[in-house]
Design a protein around this nucleic acid. Structure first.
Length: 467
DNA sequence: TGGCATT
């Protein structure tokens, strides 16, 4: 048996939750061992490595089809420290019998980002070939491999892998090229970064699968959450309040679900919702950050399809210009007796038609956060282009603003990659043209701050070149 | 006036 040195001993007082004996360190290093004679099995190799610590796993690599020994192995010690010692003591330090080159003992490729030399290149022009990419990267070192990713039809996906002979060269290329230029026809500047590790790739695939299951479009999948039950009770209550106050909405439009949710927030925590200063308009950071909570989509759902504010409503236009409350017929006394924050709520919702639901998020348990929404194009006539968004608007705010019109399947504020600032336009996709049309009707010309939203159907990607 | 992609 191999005697353990001091450093391999377990700590005398392991921290709570420490690994049980025989398991490996959480930060254990998987080693690649090369230049092994092909007749040596795991059993034969173990003694050589055990002198540096207890082995957790040792696997000789074999060809999956022929089962032939490939002359190398993966080795994981229980202790990270053992791996480091083994590497120092053995790597290139001795040559096993019958081998022409010294043994290799180093972290496996899958282990460290630091050893990476393969780059992912995005935002390429789809016409750019491997040769073009090579030309771009050659100045930074020796390129071992260059592949443009292509779809089944052979067309470029606009991205590529470039493998340099060293990490340093790859790093230099990132430094010099990332964001350095925008290829003709590309929507954003060049992306140059280290390619995903196997683990990252697996994770991404899992996320994509989840996305395709429709879990990311909960606005129609959770129609009877506790939130909507609660909101429905409030709706009845609110109907009374609105009648008493005098509605400012045009007949037939109904009332905004936002108000109901708002008042729900008041009732839940016993505190008034925070009114915003008249001049602050859409630039209140607290509102914006609060609206970014992703779980908010669920409660709105029972109300989708309700038009919050008719475009061009004269009362509203007055409000947005001067910051006043938009319903001259209202009796503040009535509203504030029933709900102390009511007037503030009205103003808030006027500026944030859909995002106004936000405060409830702080008062009720949250559904689990949603994974990042994937960008999907809706059917013909369902995709909107929205211009003149406030600078502070992100995907979340845009989503909330358009949720009342239907099932939002995708929402994106376009960002400048270099500055990470919004370009003040974005896209919203619905799952049906009627929702898109009602959103245009209600939101085109909708005034936010000093600007009016431009809401129209997105231009078709390409009118088509038949020949 | 996107679709931002990972062999």
């Amino acid at each position: 048996m191999v005697r353990l040195t001091e450093s391999e001993r377990r700590p005398q007082l392991p921290p709570p939750g420490a690994r049980p004996d025989g398991a490996k360190d959480l930060d254990a290093i998987k080693l690649f061992v090369g230049q092994i004679p092909r007749h040596l099995s795991e059993r034969d190799l173990a003694p050589l490595f055990e002198q540096f610590g207890r082995i957790y796993e040792l696997t000789v690599l074999k060809d999956p089809y022929t089962g032939l020994h490939k002359g190398c192995a993966f080795l994981t010690y229980c202790a990270r420290d053992s791996a480091i010692k083994a590497q120092i003591a053995l790597h290139e330090q001795k040559t096993l019998p019958g081998m022409a080159r010294p043994i290799q003992v180093k972290p496996a490729d899958s282990e460290s980002r630091g050893g990476d030399r393969k780059l992912f290149v995005g935002m390429l022009n789809k016409q750019q070939s491997e040769e073009d990419v090579l030309r771009l990267f050659q100045p930074f070192g020796v390129i071992d491999e260059c592949t443009v990713l292509r779809g089944p039809d052979g067309s470029s996906k606009g991205c590529a892998f470039v493998k340099f002979s060293s990490h340093t060269e790859a790093q230099a290329a990132i430094h010099a090229l990332h964001g350095s230029q925008t290829m003709p026809g590309a929507s954003s500047s060049l992306v140059v970064k280290f390619a995903d590790t196997d683990k990252e790739r697996t994770l991404r695939r899992m996320q994509q699968m989840v996305g395709q299951l429709g879990i990311l479009a909960p606005s129609l999948t959770l129609p009877f959450s506790p939130y909507s039950a609660y909101a429905q009770a409030l709706m009845q209550q609110q109907t009374t309040v609105l009648s008493a106050a005098g509605t400012y909405l045009s007949p037939g439009v109904g009332f905004s679900p936002c108000h109901i949710q708002q008042i729900g927030a008041v009732s839940l925590n016993g505190l008034p919702a925070t009114p915003i200063a008249p001049a602050s308009g859409l630039h209140s950071p607290s509102l914006l950050s609060a609206a970014a909570v992703p779980g908010l989509v669920a409660p709105i759902n029972g109300f989708s399809g309700v038009v919050p504010f008719p475009a061009g409503h004269p009362a509203l236009e007055t409000v947005y210009a001067n910051g006043l409350i938009p319903y001259p017929a209202q009796s503040p006394t009535v509203a504030e007796t029933l709900h102390p924050a009511f007037s503030g709520v009205q103003q808030y919702t006027a500026m944030y038609p859909a995002a106004a639901i936000t405060p409830i998020a702080h008062n009720v348990p949250q559904p689990p956060p949603l994974l990042q929404q994937q960008q999907r194009e809706g059917p013909e006539g369902c995709n909107l282009f929205i211009y003149h968004l406030p600078q502070e608007f992100g995907d979340s705010e845009l989503t909330h603003m358009f949720l009342p019109f239907g099932n939002v399947i995708s929402c994106k504020v376009f960002m400048d990659r270099a500055t990470n600032q919004s370009k003040c336009f974005g896209f919203v996709s619905f799952d049906n043209p009627a929702s898109a049309q009602s959103a245009i009707q209600a939101m085109n010309g909708f005034q936010v701050g000093m600007k009016r939203l431009k809401v129209q159907l997105k231009r078709p990607k390409d009118p088509g070149h038949p020949y």
